[in-house]
Design a binder for these strands. Structure first.
Length: 454
RNA sequence: GCCCCUCUAGCUCAAUGGCAGAGCAACGGACUCUUAAUCCGCAGGUUCUCGGUUCGAAUCCGAGGGGGGGUACCA
């Protein structure tokens, strides 16, 4: 309607009658004439009722902000040029029994905003927009991957063995089987089983669950995209990630040059590629090597403020800790941080040139990880050894270390082709594209402590 | 988990040891072109909870609860 009639002169009438429904957001009753602002999913329009031309005027002035109404009338403009429905008939579709928030200030109390999201979404434009963008991003990613020959699949949410990431899981219980299960912490291992099964390009978008802290970039339930491509490696995954994210930005924001917070963020490919060791040298001024003696790395770590160094940490873990302490948060990106230590990457394939490293990277954008990718380890024997190392770490008290997944090793024994895989945190990508500072803003119903005695 | 901040009417906010208030919303009324309409009137409170100090507590102190920010773990 706006497309067709926005250009009308003030005081025009069209002889066109329409029926619209929506929610009354503003109300300006007069003596013999009322104006209201009706809002629906597509926008706002003025409705205009007058005693002169309709006996349905009676009662219109008593509508409350928040009431759902339907109106029928001619499309006109007022003397001031506002496009309006000149109401002939109206119906109360649903009455609001609670007072709507302040029509000017809206609702700012964060507790109310997230607990009563249905109110926030009506009153706060940015809140609604963030969820619209989220929906578009998911849809764009699907179509983009399908365009590259990927097939969307669904894998189990309940896992007998939580795998595919180092994270603490949620536990649940199946009564009939009298067995504990874990909510998945990653999609990885089942997707690679599907590649073993002959699906050469698969992806999944869905929730993963991690029993860990909540802050402005972490929620216990968040949405992951994982994709696996046979006959590809981590270089292919880097290309896929940068083009996928840039595609979403271009479609949603109209450009790949964004502003995030008070800084510029240019997502135009190609993104910088740099190794973790080079970046540490850049930011901490120290050249590390995976073959350095443990003592030497402990000294560097201590010097750079890494606390609580565990006796079980090898050189790889120490390097990762130094990276996270000195470098990760200093990066703005986008940048692909390449070549992680093998010790902290039990599912990634050995680096083709440097022993002790793996072909893995994390894309860092706006100072935080938005994903993780690698050339997948497809050697069953090595995979079993890596799992066993993890099991030893777990026995030594690392409750995030992985558990041996015998069936996954068995799948690898049947042969996983060389495969590249990636994971992207959808929520974090949406945060970038909506300039949201808090992950809750891009989740319809973020996890909160349950309301007391309600 | 630890540190700091915060919680007053449906919403947004005042009152800093001395009678708990305003704007918007609601309710009643006036108004025939409004745009956060305007004007008049009316009503609205366990000041998060419990305890303490005080002649007197929204205000100070303690404990608890909700929320936020920072920090640790994590993506």
């Amino acid at each position: 309607m706006r497309e067709q009639f926005d250009a009308l002169e003030p005081g025009a009438s069209t002889a066109k009658t329409v029926t619209l429904a929506g929610r009354l957001m503003l109300h300006r009753p007069g003596g013999k004439m009322d104006f209201g602002t009706l809002q629906d999913g597509s926008g706002r329009i003025q409705v205009w009722a007058g005693a002169d031309w309709t006996d349905a005027y009676e009662g219109f002035g008593h509508l409350s902000l928040g009431d759902w109404i339907g109106v029928t009338g001619e499309i006109v403009t007022t003397k001031r040029g506002e496009l309006s429905i000149r109401v002939d008939r109206w119906t109360l579709l649903a009455e609001t029994k609670r007072a709507f928030p302040d029509k000017w200030h809206g609702v700012t109390d964060v507790d109310t905003r997230y607990r009563q999201r249905y109110v926030d979404l009506w009153v706060t434009d940015e809140a609604r927009r963030a969820l619209v963008v989220r929906s578009k991003v998911v849809s764009l990613m699907r179509r983009y991957l399908e365009g590259r020959g990927f097939m969307e699949v669904e894998t189990p949410v309940l896992h007998a063995i939580p795998g595919g990431a180092t994270a603490k899981p949620f536990t649940t219980h199946h009564n009939a089987l009298d067995t504990d299960f874990y909510l998945r912490i990653a999609l990885e291992l089942h997707l690679k089983r599907l590649v073993v099964g002959g699906f050469e390009r698969v992806f999944e978008i869905g929730p993963v669950f991690r029993n860990e802290g909540i802050d402005r970039t972490h929620q216990p339930v968040y949405t992951m995209l994982e994709a696996y491509q046979a006959y590809a490696d981590y270089n292919d995954m880097a290309e896929l990630i940068e083009s996928l994210v840039a595609h979403c930005a271009a479609e949603v924001c109209g450009t790949t040059k964004l502003t995030y917070g008070d800084r510029e963020l240019d997502l135009t490919p190609p993104w910088r590629r740099a190794t973790m060791l080079d970046l540490i040298e850049e930011h901490a001024g120290v050249r590390l090597d995976i073959r350095m003696a443990r003592d030497e790395l402990v000294a560097v770590a201590t010097e750079h403020g890494v606390e609580k160094i565990d006796a079980s940490w090898g050189p790889g873990k120490l390097i990762l800790e130094i990276y996270e302490k000195t470098t990760e948060h200093a990066l703005w990106g986008p940048v692909f941080v390449l070549d992680y230590p093998l010790e902290v990457s039990p599912l990634a394939r050995d680096h083709r040139e440097v022993s002790g490293l793996v072909e893995r990277f994390e894309p860092i954008v706006a100072g935080r990880e938005i994903g993780n990718a690698f050339s997948e380890l497809n050697d069953a024997t090595q995979q079993r050894e890596r799992f066993e190392d993890q099991a030893r770490a777990r026995a030594a008290g690392d409750d995030e270390a992985m558990v041996v997944d015998d069936d996954y090793v068995r799948a690898l024994e049947y042969g996983l082709p060389p495969t590249g895989g990636l994971g992207i945190g959808i929520d974090r990508v949406v945060m970038l594209l909506t300039d949201s500072a808090n992950i809750r803003d891009v989740i319809a119903f973020p996890l909160l402590r349950p309301e007391a005695n309600s």
